[in-house]
Amino acid sequence: MSEDWPLYEVFVRARSGLEHKHVGSLHAADARMAIEHARDVYTRRQEGVSLWVVPSAQIIASDPQEAEALFEPARDKVYRHPTFYAIPDEVKNL
């Protein structure tokens, strides 16, 4: 139907200093309306100080089928973490 409004994903920054976090979606005809709807729907209780809205169709997501290929190889790279290295207790400031 010609009256359908596209879906937008909404991201809210709760306080300055924090990142924008995905909170949900909504329908809007245009970008300006999407910001207004995001404000009216997702920040009624002072949940945010900044909004992002992104057309849902523009989100590119990884495929869960590929999750192993994408994320498992990081598992054995334990040397990326500081706890991998044994340093004697008496050595300070490391």
Binding site: E3, W5, A29, D30
Partner: peptide, 12 residues
Amino acid sequence: GAWVREAAAAHA
């Protein structure tokens, strides 16, 4: 509301 939703979609 149909004409309103259509109008907004047309404007977009």
